[in-house]
Nucleic acid binder design. Sequence first.
DNA 1: AATAAAAGTAGTAATCATTACTGGTTTATC
DNA 2: GATAAACCAGTAATGATTACTACTTTTATT
Lengths: 131, 131
Amino acid sequence: MSYKHSKQREVIQSFLTGRKDHPTADTIYAGVREVIPNISLGTVYRNLQLLVDLGEIQKINVGDGVDHFDADVSMHHHFHCRICGCVSDVRIKALPFDLKDQLIDFDGEVETQTLYFEGVCSACKALKQSV
Amino acid sequence: MSYKHSKQREVIQSFLTGRKDHPTADTIYAGVREVIPNISLGTVYRNLQLLVDLGEIQKINVGDGVDHFDADVSMHHHFHCRICGCVSDVRIKALPFDLKDQLIDFDGEVETQTLYFEGVCSACKALKQSV
DNA sequence: AATAAAAGTAGTAATCATTACTGGTTTATC
DNA sequence: GATAAACCAGTAATGATTACTACTTTTATT
């Protein structure tokens, strides 16, 4: 059986599960407030971190200085649009090897690797061309 | 001929060039203060960004919430130690293709890609084993 | 050189994301 | 139903970064 979540945590998690973009704590806060109007931003942060620690969601970093969250914890990568700031999933063809095994002369222990892309998303690209 | 840098900018850049780790603005500030004791932290940030915009240095992100800077602008990747927080260069065997060309069903425009590794550096690993 | 314009600076205040704290409330346990 | 543990709202604090302001240095122009 699964860990019992508080009402707040449950709403936070299901809000996140319902979205394919990768909202920030602030966006999640705004969304969850529609359901629990007096929830506190600190509660959102605390529960997001707790869910990350439990492995139920993941925190993603695309170099924009803000943490994004993703209910999909399966291995995949992200794209960050430098125009609108949106973050989307990208799938990559399976590589014939693990990137961390391609390192040269490295003596430490690699535990995780992060790969993300940046540029202009298709929506912004279309917008640019229509002007 | 190259762009004329102010004294402050020159010292910041040469401080960075002299190091193989990847200091944060704060560390650079401390180092540069040994040469220009009354330099301001804002000046450090402003000039670092300016040098980034000129392409003379690069800003690197390893997911620790702080910007690191690197005088080496050639293509390479980084490793971040979750124990001591140090950031070091890693070299990777040349891939037989460009990662961004491996994306599936992606309609946007990829301009940059970031790949970094995280784990335990060799120094921390040695320390752990000696305890 | 004298001077006007531009670029740059130190110092400080403000911002933004995130974390910590505090006192009260809910939930689980005996 | 008492007692302890988990959790919360609200607020304060923190840390990195950026913005602002008034002053100084550099550059260009006469």
